[in-house]
């Protein structure tokens, strides 16, 4: 049952959910949170919009068709970050800076190579789930060929 109330609430919830997702991503290094969770939260935010407002209306607000490209960018970024240490003769996924060196802080964000990996994971999960939602959101009977 979709009423004016649910539509309003859904629209109101969208930006705060994205903010929570980004917060989960950023604080993952000192507290609970990581890229995957953040991607799922952001994906759920889009899912709520698609369910309540319908795919067509959401597509006017958000470029859903870009989601696969986002996923590609994410996996490429994560893979690059994981493989980059190989170029310096180190095993894959080696942290930079190493464990006993204090990283540079930007507020509560620590600058680690692992953060890049997690951002890649976030983009991948977000892009993938939005693409899947988009695909399945098109699955209504009146759209069949």
């Amino acid at each position: 049952m979709i009423t004016a109330l649910t539509r309003t609430v859904a629209k109101l919830l969208f930006l705060p959910s994205l903010m929570i997702a980004v917060a989960t991503l950023v604080k993952g290094y000192a507290d609970v949170g990581d890229g995957f969770t953040a991607g799922v939260i952001a994906g759920l935010a889009v899912l709520l919009q698609v369910i309540v407002l319908g795919r067509d209306e959401v597509e006017r607000m958000l470029p859903l068709r870009w989601a696969p490209r986002l996923a590609f960018a994410g996996i490429a970024l994560a893979l690059l970050d994981a493989l980059a240490p190989l170029a310096f003769g180190q095993p894959v996924m080696t942290h930079l800076p190493p464990a006993n060196v204090k990283p540079i802080h930007l507020g509560s964000l620590e600058l680690l190579s692992a953060v890049v990996f997690d951002v890649g994971v976030f983009l991948l999960v977000f892009g993938f789930s939005v693409a899947a939602i988009d695909l399945l959101g098109r699955a209504s009977p009146d759209r069949l060929p």
Binding site: F36, L124, A132
Partner: peptide, 12 residues
């Protein structure tokens, strides 16, 4: 083919 539902396993 269907869409590209394949890219997500990579993360951990």
């Amino acid at each position: 083919m269907t869409a590209e539902e394949r890219d997500e396993w990579a993360m951990r």
